[in-house]
Design a protein around this nucleic acid. Structure first.
Lengths: 260, 260
DNA sequence: AGTTTGTTAGTAGCGCCATAACAACACCAC
DNA sequence: GTGGTGTTGTTATGGCGCTACTAACAAACT
């Protein structure tokens, strides 16, 4: 079984339920229908607690209560539970982010639009997010290099194709033919093999992104010191800064000395 | 302003952040960029706590950290934050519900497919969910009555149209012309005005749903005792039970004595 | 009588909020 | 330089609230 019960309950907890709520919800799905006693037999939730727990599950729309004696409980269908939770999630997201949008950078008018900053991003997913964001912020050209196809990913891929169709010069750079093959189908995205005598940088470079003349992101795959098994990717990026301009030029001339 | 800051932060808390995390996240959006001190000046979060809070926000992918002295923080864009949270949510949902699906009713094979049960549902949204679900479970006919258009709602509306197009006999019943008007555009859904000498039941009936000969849902709008301002809707339903059969017949003969 | 049900009280533990203290460092006047 | 002043990043320590868990009890049912 891919997911075991404890994992499932932990996930339910991360979705905002308490441990008891998760256990009772799962138990009611096992049972289909049951009384407080039934539930407490199948779980390690004390019977006396079942009443209040189901009550709060009812408030969340995950359980229905039958006012009989003894009280009968049933869990709503999985689809219904899921969509109820999703709806709640989106609702809370709206409330939170709508407000955040209104206050976006209401302080700090003293600092200019972009100051000299270099930012670190850790983790493969975060880095992909950031890269896709930067690709969309480019106005003229994008050059993206990746060691392997896993380091392209869906988000980045879509962003690259979008920009190419917007008329930007989009180039994908890789020694790995599998990466280049991703864009065999696309006319606007040029997939290029680097000159053999110039390795893209060190051997631990993961991905590199250049945009316009002043957008840059670069990641490395470090064998994490504490977790030797796991390859943790770390990146830094900078945009519209002096740093970025310099670094972009540096990388450009290294990577394709004749190209520009 | 539709949403004020406290509301937004409460929403963030319901999305799984702590109070401090919510405050810091919002503050960083106000600031654009800032140090621990900057953040603590704009919020009531102690400076010494900002370090650990931002760290956990970084783990969630909501904040980026610049390793300089002093350390600089910035919040990721709203879209990015939102999609990161959404992804996490869907991931947890998958883990949780995938498991629940595997254990669905693994006990209780003794009880038959449907036993004699009547279920209570409280709250307008839940009732709409349940009604839509029941509409989709009908195989021959659906009759839905609502006091006002708000009590139809999107979910139910879609379900009704779906079933009508599946070839079921779908009838919408209401004294309110606005409700009937909803289906002026639809040939398969018949919108009918009840005979004037038969009120749909008491004056506090909210919606009624009949499906086949043995599916029934009925809601009332009770002026809640503790919250006089608010109209709390409560429903009960039953499906494929003797109760349902009897009640359906009862309602049918009351509502449209000549129709069948 | 004996069991089950629904309700309430109460304790223990943990995570989060909040405050304080401290070494390391930067800045500045002299 | 030297010493003073302030800031930064880190760590320790209570308090408080929520959750987990136990216990007890009146009412209803067998």
């Amino acid at each position: 079984m891919a997911v075991d019960e404890d994992d499932a309950i932990e996930s339910l907890e991360r979705l905002g339920l308490t441990s008891y709520e998760g256990k009772v919800f799962v138990a009611l799905h096992k049972l289909g229908t049951g009384t407080a006693r039934d539930v407490s037999r199948v779980t390690d939730v004390p019977r006396s607690q079942v009443y209040s727990v189901t009550e709060s599950l009812e408030d969340r729309g995950l359980v229905e209560v039958q006012q009989s004696s003894p009280i009968q409980y049933r869990a709503v269908s999985i689809d219904e539970a899921r969509s109820t939770l999703r709806e709640r999630f989106e609702q809370e997201s709206d409330r939170a982010f709508d407000y955040v949008e209104t206050v976006h950078e209401e302080f700090g008018p003293d600092q200019e639009e972009e100051q000299e900053d270099i930012w670190m991003v850790r983790g493969q997913d975060r880095i992909a997010d950031r890269a896709a964001d930067l690709i969309r912020r480019a106005e003229n050209s994008v050059l993206f290099a990746a060691r392997s196809p896993e380091l392209v990913g869906e988000d980045i891929d879509t962003a690259l194709r979008e920009r190419a169709e917007d008329g930007l010069a989009v180039v994908v750079f890789s020694e790995d033919p599998a990466v280049r093959a991703l864009y065999d189908d696309h006319d606007e995205v040029r997939a290029v093999e680097p000159a053999t005598d110039h390795h893209v940088n060190d051997e631990h470079t993961g991905r590199a992104l250049l945009g316009d003349d002043d957008i840059l992101l670069l990641s490395v795959l470090g064998n994490d010191e504490e977790l030797p098994g796991i390859n943790r990717e770390t990146a830094f990026w900078s945009a519209r800064t002096g740093f970025a301009e310099v670094l972009v030029q540096l990388v450009e001339t290294t990577i394709s000395p004749v190209d520009r």
